[in-house]
């Protein structure tokens, strides 16, 4: 596939000079995120997140499967992140680049390893039937920072999703249709959100939510996964320039603030959506 075109020397110099004066090419200040826009589908568990021009669609769905023999009480959370050439022609269908693998791993750490979804609550009959929750992440447009966009979309979709209600009598399981019984939300412990900072040069210049051009020119990135309870779930820095501890502390302080804003936005969007779509009648 065609390689990503390297930015020109002019573009690079312009961006660096502007950053030294605290300016960014899209008019944001250095620690601002682009606007997060969440759209919900007709179906529960369908969410589109837009971070500026970056666009990710997530569909959450559930199926009933047999659990692993050594973990009879645990359901599954499967995250599928294959980047199609729709995001950008730099991504090849069916062959994951290093960047893509890193992104998939980080999303996995953020959602699964942080235990955001209670997997034991997905058990129906121990050792026989458990829910397997599938999160399909579709990257539609790569205008930089797809990871943060995907993490916001995925956690919102998981919170929006409802699984059908199930009645267990002995070994018999009855799955009730959505019309018959009120569908059940997933047990979610917290809302982890990824925030990516890009670093430029040796003079400790950091920007939040790098655009496509910024991520091409950055000398290194740092991804934080935080929740609104001010807990750090993941701190990942894969390669790039070394950073002093002070810089890392500084971006964490900023991250804590930004995560609260994003979390509040997710909450208000979900509430707005809940008013529009009647899921349960009391």
């Amino acid at each position: 596939m065609p390689r990503e075109v390297d930015p020109s020397i002019n573009e690079s110099e312009f961006l660096h000079k502007a950053l030294q004066q605290g300016l960014r090419t899209d008019g944001r200040s250095v620690y601002d995120m682009r606007d997060v826009k969440l759209t919900f589908g007709d179906e529960l568990g369908w969410v589109e997140c837009r971070l500026g021009e970056t666009r990710v669609v997530v569909q959450v769905s559930g199926e009933i499967v047999k659990p692993l023999a050594d973990r009879p009480y645990e359901g599954f959370l499967v995250i599928s992140t294959e980047i199609s050439p729709m995001a950008s022609s730099a991504y090849e269908a069916g062959r994951a680049s290093d960047e893509e693998v890193l992104m998939a791993r980080l999303l996995e750490k953020a959602l699964r390893r942080s235990e955001a979804v209670d997997r034991e609550a997905l058990c129906i009959v121990a050792g026989q039937k458990v829910w397997s929750i599938r999160v399909d992440v579709h990257f539609l447009d790569d205008e930089g920072n797809m990871l943060d966009c995907a993490s916001i979309a995925a956690i919102t979709a998981l919170r929006h999703f409802r699984r059908p209600d199930v009645t267990v009598i002995g070994e018999d399981v009855t799955i009730h249709s959505m019309a018959e019984h009120v569908p059940v939300p997933l047990a979610i412990h917290h809302t982890p959100i990824c925030l990516t900072f890009a670093f430029f040069g040796d003079d400790s210049l950091a920007v939040l939510d790098p655009s496509h051009l910024e991520s091409l020119l950055a000398s290194g990135t740092l991804t934080l996964t935080l929740n609104s309870q001010q807990e750090i779930c993941v701190l990942s820095k894969a390669g790039g320039v070394p950073l002093p501890a002070d810089d890392i502390m500084k971006v964490i302080q900023i991250g804590v603030q930004r995560v609260k804003e994003v979390d509040a936005l997710i909450k208000s969007s979900l509430e707005m959506e809940a008013k529009k779509t009647v899921v349960e009648v009391r």
Binding site: D42, E43, S61, E63, K129, P164, I169, E171, D172, V173, T174, I175, H176, S177, M178, A179, E180
Partner: peptide
């Protein structure tokens, strides 16, 4: 539209 769960069924 998926209809996997629009109809109820039982494993009994």
């Amino acid at each position: 539209s998926s209809t996997a769960f629009s109809t109820a069924f039982s494993t009994s």
